[in-house]
């Protein structure tokens, strides 16, 4: 029983990281209709930049947090400006291919600049043990669950109350009409990219702080695909929920079955979900007009 509770708790923690990345997927998908295949790589890049920053200027928590947010935003804006905006009006498939190209570049850049071996992130506070009842959790795990909760509330409020959030929903609904109503769609997309890269970057840094930094971190992007699809690609809050479920399923299969099955449990889940309900649990059904 205790084992089950332990698995559940760590599953929720890793699920929260997937959930954050899935939120990042959903933000971009909602405002531009494309999937950023480089999301995991963006998370990795931000994590590496933060690691380099922490190595240079010390790993004070506030400094690291501020740097992560800034690095994520800048990276997102640069990608949007250099690669995505010039492709506006091209078929979605071409833009998706551009993000695949970007993924390859970022992955190799990390290997080119740094090396392939794992390093500790150097944030000791993350691995302090916290006991809740019989449960052993690391501070970083508790933090990331809290972070996801906070971001969930923040993004709900953002979409509900802020001008940009409402504009983003308008663009997602119908970008041409939104443009005619005076919404600056290009800027809305830039904000979406910045926000998505920041959230992905936070997830990357949290993951690196918990499990060391290595060039394999990009695979959390692959793991978050199932989460985003399960929740519904256009549902930001739903994706976060999907992340928790994928994290739990992964941890359960890993704990009770085998580690190879753990690796693909998410992918098996996507295939199932897509066959039965392609729009995910919370997504809007896409209706195509002939």
């Amino acid at each position: 029983m205790n084992y089950l509770i332990q698995l559940t708790a760590t599953g929720i923690a890793i699920g929260a990281i997937y959930g954050l990345i899935a939120m990042a997927f959903a933000l971009v998908y909602k405002s531009t209709g494309l999937i950023n295949f480089a999301q995991g790589e963006v998370a990795m890049m931000v994590a590496y930049l933060t690691w380099a920053f922490a190595g240079q200027f010390g790993s004070g928590l506030i400094g690291v947090a501020v740097f992560t947010i800034v690095a994520g935003m800048v990276l997102g804006l640069v990608i949007e400006r250099l690669l995505i905006r010039p492709m506006m009006g091209e078929p979605i498939f071409s833009i998706v291919l551009v993000t695949i190209g970007l993924a390859v570049i970022l992955r190799s850049l990390v290997l080119l600049i740094w090396d392939a071996s794992p390093h500790p992130m150097g944030i000791e506070a993350a691995s302090e043990l916290i006991r809740i009842g019989n449960l052993n959790m690391r501070a970083g795990q508790v933090f990331v669950i809290g972070l996801m909760g906070a971001l969930l509330v923040a993004s709900w409020a953002f979409f509900r109350y802020s001008r940009y959030g409402i504009a983003m929903r308008a663009v997602a609904d119908d970008d041409r009409t939104a443009l005619l109503m005076g919404v600056n769609t290009a800027r809305v997309q830039a904000v979406a990219w910045a926000a998505s890269s920041t959230i992905a970057g936070m997830a990357g840094v949290c993951f690196a702080a918990l499990y060391d930094i290595s060039p394999d971190i990009y695979s959390i992007g692959l793991k978050a695909f199932p989460a985003a699809i399960l929740g519904g690609l256009d549902a930001v809050l739903g994706s976060a929920f999907g992340g928790i479920i994928v994290g739990l399923i992964e941890n359960m299969t890993g704990g009770y079955m085998s580690s190879t099955i753990k690796e693909i449990s998410g992918f098996v889940l996507i295939v199932g979900v897509l066959m039965i309900r392609p729009s995910g649990l919370f997504g809007q059904r896409e209706i195509e007009r002939v």
């Binding site: 492709m87 291919l97 695949i100 190209g101 570049i105 850049l109």
Partner: peptide, 23 residues
């Protein structure tokens, strides 16, 4: 030392370049 990485970056750059400038 990093032939593989350099080659991969070139793949990426070439994919993006063709999509951007000559689809």
């Amino acid at each position: 030392t990093k032939a593989f990485e350099v080659r991969n970056i070139l793949y990426g750059v070439i994919i993006i370049g063709f999509l951007r400038f000559d689809p």
